[in-house]
Every structure is written in C-alpha cells, then in structure tokens.
Amino acid sequence: MPDGAPIVGPDTASDAPSGPRPRRRGRTTLLIATAAVLGLVAGTCTGFVIQAHREPTRLPSLSQPVVARAKGPGPEPLSAAQDHRVKTNGDLRKLLIPRPKGTKEAHWADNDGWLDLTDYAESYEKPAKIFPDLISDEFRRAAVVGWSQGSTSTVEIRLVQFRQEESLKAAEYAENGYYWAEKEGGTRSWSLPGTADGMAYVHTRPDTKPGYLPLYSAEAHAWRGDIAMEVWVYDTRPISKDRIMDLAKRQVGRL
C-alpha cells in the first residue's frame, strides 16, 4: 500500500483497499517560465539599442474613422443551468445523488455532508503527511454522502473541489485514482459515459483477513471542471459492473 493512500471504507475502513495519493508536479513548468522571462529581457535590451540608431518614423494622423457600434442587444448571459460556476459555487452537497430509500446513513457522512481540509486529510492513512499536500494542491472543500444497505454493503461518494488557480488538480486527482485502481490484482475496468476519461472498476479479488468476511470492492473516478468525483462500494459479496456503473453515471449526470 503506498504511503498516504486514503482509507475509503466505513466500518471496514482499515480493511479496505487503498486509494490514490496525489502526485506532485509543476517545478519543470516554473523553470521553463523563468528561462522564457530572462530571454525576453535580453531581447528587449537589444531592441532598444537598434531602435536608438534609426531615423524617427513619422506617426500617422490621430484622426481615425469612427467605427459604428453594432445595433441590437448584446449576447445573452448564460443561465444558471448553463453556467457551470453557478452550480459548483453553490451548495456542493446538492450535487450529490440522494441516499436511496430503505438505506441507513453512514456514520462518517453525518457531519452535515461536508468534509473540510482536516476531515478529508483524516481519510488518509497518514493525515500529517497528506495535510500540507492538500493545502498546496489548493483544496477548497469536499462533500460526501454515504449509506449502508443491510449488514454487508456500504457506499461512499465524494465530490472534492479545488481552487485551481495554478493547475488542474481535479483532473490530476482523478488520474491518480485510475492509476491506483488499475494496480489492484483481478481488476476489471470500463470507460464512464458522459466524461472525458472517467473510469469504473470492479475488483474481483476480495480482501481477506482472519476473523473477517471477504471484502469485495468497486470504485469509479472522474472529474469535471474543478471537481473530482470518487465513488466507492464495498460488499461481502462480489459487486457487479451494473452496480458501480449505475452509481457513477447518476453522479456524473448531476455535475
């Protein structure tokens, strides 16, 4: 299990397979940008020297033809349904699919459905290690819904939002989700409709420990705009493709 991988199960969290830990990147981009600035300064100085030895160029007349303004109303602003920012800047919990009737709310989702920075870091094996990474990755907030069905099955869905002032962290977190899911043995995967590169996975080999029932798992990862989506399903019985795909497609449809 990689260092800092999140624990993503309810009562069986310590027995659940690990999820992704975000990778760090950006140093190369910064070095390239710095080199570009230095080159620009050198080129500008050379240009001043050349220009100083040239004859002055006669300027054109300040009188220019007036361009008529186009008639008619300007473009209509986007409606709330069309503007992604209007949707995602509101109550993030409203974008989560509702808990199905007949299920019991999971105890880890009873904090009004919100996960702040500390809550989200606590879902990792080493919170102290992941906490500063989440700050530098511009973590903004996360919303969660979870439920248990009977005594054998649990579901958890998270929407993790980033500020993304420096880079596309939502896409990076989803990509790391794909990476770690595909490293599990006995894994089947499918593309997730309605997304650019979202994926759903069923792990056919259960986790086993003495004294515990075998624990099967399935997961799905995708991103849209500044939100990364995580769907996790656990059961003591094998999980079908239809089950994880239905949950993931319904959640994507609300983003």
Rank of each mutant, 00 (worst) to 15 (best):
R99G: 01
Q161S: 06
G72K: 13
P98V: 01
G39Q: 05
E55W: 13
D116A: 04
P56F: 09
T34H: 08
D116P: 02
F131T: 06
P56W: 07
V144Q: 11
R69T: 15
I135R: 14
L95W: 00
N111K: 11
R163V: 12
I32T: 05
G113D: 02
F162L: 07
A143Q: 03
Q149C: 01
L78H: 04
R85G: 02
G150H: 12
K101C: 00
D112H: 07
Q164H: 12
T88C: 01
L134R: 05
Q161C: 03
P100R: 03
T28W: 10
S136Q: 06
L78A: 12
K129F: 10
E76C: 05
A106L: 10
Q161P: 04
G150Y: 08
V66C: 04
A42Y: 09
L31P: 00
R85A: 12
G43V: 12
K94A: 14
R27G: 04
D116I: 01
S153V: 10
P127H: 02
W114R: 11
A109D: 01
Q82N: 10
I50F: 13
L96Q: 00
R140L: 14
I130W: 02
T44W: 14
L62S: 15
N89I: 02
P132S: 06
K94H: 10
G113L: 03
L95A: 05
L96N: 04
R58Q: 15
L31Y: 04
D137C: 03
P60E: 12
T88M: 02
I32R: 07
T88S: 12
D112W: 00
Q51C: 05
W114F: 08
T103W: 03
V66M: 08
D110P: 00
Y120F: 15
S151C: 02
A33W: 03
L40E: 09
K71L: 15
P60L: 10
G113Y: 02
P77S: 12
G26W: 06
A121F: 00
P100Y: 02
T154A: 10
P77N: 09
T46Y: 10
K71M: 14
T88Q: 04
A81P: 03
Y120L: 13
T44V: 11
Q164G: 07
S153W: 07
E125W: 03
P75E: 15
H84T: 06
Q51V: 13
L95C: 01
P75V: 14
L117F: 02
A121M: 01
E138V: 11
N111E: 06
K104H: 08
L117E: 13
V144G: 01
A35P: 01
D83P: 07
Y124Q: 09
T57E: 15
I130A: 00
K129P: 00
K129I: 03
K87C: 03
D110T: 12
N89T: 04
T154W: 08
T57K: 14
T28Q: 11
V37E: 01
A142W: 11
F139A: 09
V67A: 15
A121V: 05
H53A: 15
D137N: 12
G26I: 08
A36V: 14
R69Y: 08
A106K: 01
A121W: 02
A52I: 08
T46F: 09
D83A: 14
G74C: 10
A106H: 07
L159P: 02
I97V: 08
D91E: 06
